[in-house]
Amino acid sequence: MTAKTSDKKQSSLREWLIVMLLMILAITVGSIFPDVRPRILQSAWSVTREMVFILPAVLILMGLFSVWVKKEMVEKYLGKAAGGRGIMLALFLGALPTGPLYVAFPLAAGLRQKGASLSNISVFLTAWACIKIPQELLEIQFLGFRFMLMRLSLTILTAVIIGLIVERVIPAADIPKEYSTGLTRFI
């Protein structure tokens, strides 16, 4: 147990180190190219704003999810035995108009710990990333209906195939338990 705790501390220390290095890099780039500086600041600021508005809500939603939703339920509908219906559900959940991709990772880890299969986790993430109802509307508007429909069908197909490959290749024990958000520890 102590080894694990110090491991965790070390990994978080490493992460903070990377954050510092990146900031130093950004500051260096900003001082060498002053014309780029406002754009760097502005894009970083807009992401920060996005996160501030969405992330707390998503995290609380996840907390509520793990308080209410029983492991058996996730296992039944998104587990290995759920089959094609599990894949459909994962696609549907991912396609709901929700926040950016990075909020999906802790959610996916939570689902995983409650017994969802790796293929369904992968389908869920891929769908979350690139199948979104508002996004498809934008795509129709700017790239045309035929383009959207074709890319959408190909994307759904590949999301499922990628999920099936991931399930085959990765051993189930590979998903980190102590490094993830660790929601199940409370239940």
Binding site: E15, I18, V19, L22, M23, L25, A26, V29, G30, V36, R37, R39, I40, L41, S43, A44, W45, V47, T48, M51, Y102
Partner: peptide, 12 residues
């Protein structure tokens, strides 16, 4: 990390 990376990439 994500915030700083996005700032850098979109800035350039």
């Amino acid at each position: 990390m994500v915030v700083v990376l996005i700032g850098l990439i979109l800035g350039l």
